[in-house]
Design a protein around this nucleic acid. Sequence first.
DNA 1: TTAGCGTTCCGTCATCTGCG
DNA 2: CGCAGATGACGGAACGCTAA
Length: 138
Amino acid sequence: MLLIATSYGAPHIESRVREHRLELYARHMAVTGDETESAATGDISAYQIHNPAPSLPQGVMMSGSPNSMHCPQQHTEEATRKREVRLLKNREAARECRRKKKEYVKCLENRVAVLENQNKTLIEELKALKDLYCHKAN
DNA sequence: TTAGCGTTCCGTCATCTGCG
DNA sequence: CGCAGATGACGGAACGCTAA
Protein backbone atom coordinates (compact mmCIF):
# COMPACT_ATOMS: atom_id res chain seq x y z
CA MET A 1 0.00 0.00 0.00
CA LEU A 2 1.60 3.18 -1.22
CA LEU A 3 0.12 5.44 1.39
CA ILE A 4 1.52 3.48 4.29
CA ALA A 5 4.93 3.15 2.79
CA THR A 6 5.29 6.77 1.84
CA SER A 7 3.86 8.33 4.91
CA TYR A 8 6.72 6.88 6.83
CA GLY A 9 9.12 7.76 4.10
CA ALA A 10 9.30 11.52 4.40
CA PRO A 11 7.42 13.05 7.29
CA HIS A 12 9.64 16.08 7.20
CA ILE A 13 8.39 16.91 3.75
CA GLU A 14 4.82 16.57 4.85
CA SER A 15 5.10 19.02 7.70
CA ARG A 16 7.02 21.55 5.68
CA VAL A 17 4.58 21.48 2.83
CA ARG A 18 1.70 21.88 5.23
CA GLU A 19 3.36 24.84 6.91
CA HIS A 20 4.02 26.41 3.55
CA ARG A 21 0.44 26.01 2.43
CA LEU A 22 -0.96 27.33 5.67
CA GLU A 23 1.26 30.34 5.30
CA LEU A 24 0.06 30.96 1.77
CA TYR A 25 -3.51 30.55 2.88
CA ALA A 26 -3.12 32.94 5.77
CA ARG A 27 -1.49 35.50 3.53
CA HIS A 28 -4.23 35.13 0.97
CA MET A 29 -6.99 35.55 3.52
CA ALA A 30 -5.28 38.56 5.00
CA VAL A 31 -5.14 40.24 1.62
CA THR A 32 -8.57 39.36 0.26
CA GLY A 33 -10.65 38.79 3.33
CA ASP A 34 -12.66 36.56 1.05
CA GLU A 35 -14.06 33.34 2.46
CA THR A 36 -16.03 31.97 -0.41
CA GLU A 37 -13.64 32.23 -3.23
CA SER A 38 -12.18 29.32 -5.06
CA ALA A 39 -8.54 29.62 -4.06
CA ALA A 40 -8.91 28.99 -0.39
CA THR A 41 -5.57 27.27 -0.42
CA GLY A 42 -3.77 30.35 -1.50
CA ASP A 43 -2.42 28.79 -4.64
CA ILE A 44 -4.67 28.92 -7.62
CA SER A 45 -4.68 25.52 -9.20
CA ALA A 46 -4.04 25.16 -12.86
CA TYR A 47 -7.36 23.46 -13.12
CA GLN A 48 -9.10 26.67 -12.21
CA ILE A 49 -7.11 28.54 -14.77
CA HIS A 50 -7.80 26.04 -17.51
CA ASN A 51 -11.43 25.52 -16.57
CA PRO A 52 -12.91 28.83 -15.65
CA ALA A 53 -16.31 28.14 -14.15
CA PRO A 54 -17.78 25.27 -16.13
CA SER A 55 -21.25 26.16 -17.24
CA LEU A 56 -23.51 24.07 -15.06
CA PRO A 57 -21.65 21.43 -13.18
CA GLN A 58 -22.52 18.82 -10.65
CA GLY A 59 -25.97 19.16 -9.25
CA VAL A 60 -26.31 22.86 -9.58
CA MET A 61 -29.99 23.13 -10.07
CA MET A 62 -31.47 25.82 -12.15
CA SER A 63 -33.22 26.63 -8.99
CA GLY A 64 -34.82 29.72 -7.68
CA SER A 65 -38.37 30.62 -8.18
CA PRO A 66 -39.42 32.79 -11.07
CA ASN A 67 -40.06 35.46 -8.47
CA SER A 68 -36.47 35.64 -7.38
CA MET A 69 -35.01 35.37 -10.86
CA HIS A 70 -36.11 38.37 -12.81
CA CYS A 71 -33.26 38.63 -15.25
CA PRO A 72 -30.55 36.36 -16.64
CA GLN A 73 -27.97 38.41 -14.77
CA GLN A 74 -29.48 37.54 -11.39
CA HIS A 75 -29.90 34.04 -12.59
CA THR A 76 -26.22 33.52 -13.29
CA GLU A 77 -25.18 35.31 -10.13
CA GLU A 78 -27.31 32.94 -8.10
CA ALA A 79 -25.91 29.96 -9.93
CA THR A 80 -22.37 31.19 -9.33
CA ARG A 81 -23.05 31.75 -5.66
CA LYS A 82 -24.48 28.26 -5.30
CA ARG A 83 -21.51 26.78 -7.07
CA GLU A 84 -19.11 28.58 -4.76
CA VAL A 85 -20.95 27.36 -1.69
CA ARG A 86 -20.93 23.83 -3.02
CA LEU A 87 -17.22 23.95 -3.83
CA LEU A 88 -16.40 25.33 -0.40
CA LYS A 89 -18.39 22.59 1.30
CA ASN A 90 -16.84 19.89 -0.82
CA ARG A 91 -13.37 21.29 -0.21
CA GLU A 92 -13.89 20.99 3.53
CA ALA A 93 -15.49 17.57 3.16
CA ALA A 94 -12.50 16.33 1.19
CA ARG A 95 -10.15 17.65 3.84
CA GLU A 96 -12.08 15.90 6.59
CA CYS A 97 -12.31 12.71 4.56
CA ARG A 98 -8.56 12.62 4.11
CA ARG A 99 -7.98 13.29 7.77
CA LYS A 100 -10.23 10.37 8.71
CA LYS A 101 -8.59 8.08 6.21
CA LYS A 102 -5.16 8.91 7.56
CA GLU A 103 -6.32 8.21 11.09
CA TYR A 104 -7.80 4.90 9.98
CA VAL A 105 -4.57 3.85 8.31
CA LYS A 106 -2.64 4.78 11.44
CA CYS A 107 -4.96 2.59 13.51
CA LEU A 108 -4.42 -0.31 11.15
CA GLU A 109 -0.66 0.14 11.35
CA ASN A 110 -0.82 0.11 15.13
CA ARG A 111 -2.89 -3.04 15.04
CA VAL A 112 -0.39 -4.70 12.74
CA ALA A 113 2.40 -3.85 15.16
CA VAL A 114 0.48 -5.29 18.11
CA LEU A 115 -0.37 -8.49 16.26
CA GLU A 116 3.20 -8.92 15.10
CA ASN A 117 4.37 -8.67 18.68
CA GLN A 118 1.78 -11.16 19.83
CA ASN A 119 2.81 -13.51 17.08
CA LYS A 120 6.43 -13.25 18.04
CA THR A 121 5.62 -13.94 21.70
CA LEU A 122 3.52 -16.97 20.82
CA ILE A 123 6.22 -18.39 18.60
CA GLU A 124 8.75 -18.07 21.39
CA GLU A 125 6.35 -19.62 23.86
CA LEU A 126 5.76 -22.53 21.53
CA LYS A 127 9.46 -23.01 21.10
CA ALA A 128 10.01 -23.04 24.85
CA LEU A 129 7.26 -25.63 25.33
CA LYS A 130 8.72 -27.79 22.61
CA ASP A 131 12.12 -27.68 24.30
CA LEU A 132 10.55 -28.60 27.59
CA TYR A 133 8.71 -31.47 26.02
CA CYS A 134 11.85 -32.81 24.35
CA HIS A 135 13.82 -32.76 27.57
CA LYS A 136 11.11 -34.65 29.40
CA ALA A 137 10.90 -37.18 26.64
CA ASN A 138 14.63 -37.92 26.90
C1' DT B 1 23.95 23.23 -10.61
C1' DT B 2 20.07 21.05 -12.32
C1' DA B 3 16.89 17.75 -14.44
C1' DG B 4 14.23 14.01 -13.05
C1' DC B 5 11.85 11.38 -9.74
C1' DG B 6 9.13 10.40 -5.59
C1' DT B 7 6.10 12.06 -2.08
C1' DT B 8 2.50 14.76 0.04
C1' DC B 9 -1.29 17.79 0.02
C1' DC B 10 -4.84 20.13 -2.20
C1' DG B 11 -9.04 21.32 -5.07
C1' DT B 12 -12.28 19.68 -8.18
C1' DC B 13 -15.33 16.50 -10.52
C1' DA B 14 -18.01 12.31 -10.74
C1' DT B 15 -20.21 8.93 -8.38
C1' DC B 16 -22.03 6.52 -4.45
C1' DT B 17 -24.87 6.36 -0.34
C1' DG B 18 -28.06 7.25 3.29
C1' DC B 19 -31.83 9.97 4.85
C1' DG B 20 -36.25 12.49 4.79
C1' DC C 1 -36.95 10.29 -5.52
C1' DG C 2 -34.09 14.28 -4.61
C1' DC C 3 -30.63 16.16 -1.91
C1' DA C 4 -26.43 16.63 0.89
C1' DG C 5 -22.45 14.54 2.49
C1' DA C 6 -18.69 11.08 1.76
C1' DT C 7 -15.29 9.29 -1.09
C1' DG C 8 -12.52 7.66 -5.25
C1' DA C 9 -9.96 9.46 -9.11
C1' DC C 10 -7.31 12.83 -11.29
C1' DG C 11 -4.06 16.46 -12.12
C1' DG C 12 -1.24 20.29 -10.35
C1' DA C 13 2.01 22.58 -7.03
C1' DA C 14 5.72 22.45 -3.89
C1' DC C 15 9.44 20.34 -1.92
C1' DG C 16 13.50 17.14 -0.98
C1' DC C 17 16.75 13.90 -2.74
C1' DT C 18 20.06 12.20 -5.98
C1' DA C 19 22.71 11.14 -10.06
C1' DA C 20 25.04 13.29 -13.78
